[in-house]
């Protein structure tokens, strides 16, 4: 187990190092210079040069890379070129929206996908299975921004149960916060739940044809108990893999939904920063997301070992 853990940690650190290099140098070769962008087209070269010096952009890339990384390690993300505030403040504000939204959507999607996948697998070939397969196909095919607009039309404009957009902030109370995230979370969860339910179904069907399921049935377990007690845990590895990927996607990939619902999340922050050539923000937030993705994958790797004892020995 210790060996497994250590090897995972080493691979985590390596991934982070490589990711930081790639992000930094990709941003480096993107055309557009923050200083000239901030000063507008008519700025004189001298003004641009002095702003560059002020922002530290006149140093060599190597030095800037090391400054950036050493800042990241201690939690100093630098100062936004456009907002003129520390990026960490921006991130903390935005993450209060993005992280709960991602978790909320993930929770919804899991809560839907698990029972739906279980039913489809146990009634394989039946009407329920057929219906579920059809619906999930639809769920994957429907673009989530369009589904989001439908939700707004129906629940916000017609029924007036939810507001059409914006985020009230957590200061107004937990339930208000949850309420303003509900429609976006549903919009995000639809696709994810559909994918997850299908993965769940096929993993379970695969597991149900294994010999040990027959052994369990021969012991006198009912079909239901076999499904819950023996098949489910064995089917978890592919499901966990997809769950990990989905969390990463939900954290970073909610840009469109955040725009539809006017949510001040990380996705919108990056989007605006790219338009304004606020490269230091782009760099740091992207790095943060990469960090989140890698950490989530690391956690998924650890759960593998919890779920499957065979991985504890010689991973």
């Amino acid at each position: 187990m210790l060996h497994y853990l250590l090897s995972r940690i080493i691979s985590l650190l390596l991934s982070l190092a490589v990711a930081s290099l790639v992000i930094f140098f990709v941003i480096e070769i993107i055309p557009g210079d923050p200083a000239s962008f901030m000063l507008g087209l008519n700025a004189s070269p001298e003004t641009v040069a002095s702003l560059k010096a002020e922002l530290g952009l006149d140093q060599t890339p190597m030095i800037r890379y090391f400054n950036w990384v050493s800042g990241l390690v201690v939690g100093d993300f630098g100062i936004s070129y456009t907002y003129k505030v520390p990026i960490s403040e921006l991130v903390v504000d935005r993450i209060q929206v993005s992280l709960p939204l991602a978790l909320y959507a993930l929770l919804l999607s899991t809560a839907i996908a698990f029972p739906v996948g279980l039913i489809a697998a146990s009634k394989r070939g039946g009407t329920a299975d057929f219906g579920i397969m059809g619906f999930t196909q639809l769920g994957i095919a429907v673009p989530n921004f369009w589904f989001a607009m439908l939700l707004v039309l129906f629940f916000a404009i017609n029924l007036r149960w939810f507001s059409a957009g914006g985020f009230s902030g957590w200061d107004t109370g937990f339930w208000y916060g949850i309420k303003s995230l509900t429609l976006p979370a549903i919009a995000l969860a639809l696709t994810q739940a559909s994918i997850l339910a299908r993965v769940m179904r096929s993993a379970l069907i695969d597991t149900l044809s294994q010999d040990y399921i027959r052994t369990a049935r021969a012991k006198g377990l009912s079909q239901r108990r076999v499904l819950i007690k023996h098949a489910l845990r064995n089917a978890m590895i592919p499901v966990l893999t997809i769950l990990g990927l989905q969390f990463s996607f939900l954290l970073a990939g909610a840009i469109i939904i955040e725009n539809v619902f006017f949510l001040p999340g990380l996705g919108r922050l990056i989007f605006q920063a790219i338009i304004q050539r606020d490269l230091i923000v782009v760099e740091s937030v992207v790095m943060l997301m990469v960090f989140a993705v890698i950490v989530v994958n690391f956690l998924v790797d650890l759960t593998y070992a919890v779920v499957d004892p065979r991985l504890r020995r010689d991973g």
């Binding site: 294994q210 010999d211 040990y212 027959r214 052994t215 369990a216 049935r217 021969a218 012991k219 006198g220 377990l221 023996h230 845990r233 064995n234 779920v307 499957d308 004892p309 065979r310």
Partner: peptide
């Protein structure tokens, strides 16, 4: 099943739940 009739199968490698 399991109480009055017990059964064992051919493939011991896969007949037990691995987890």
């Amino acid at each position: 099943r399991g109480r009055d009739i017990g059964m064992i199968f051919q493939e011991p490698m896969t007949a037990l739940n691995p987890v």
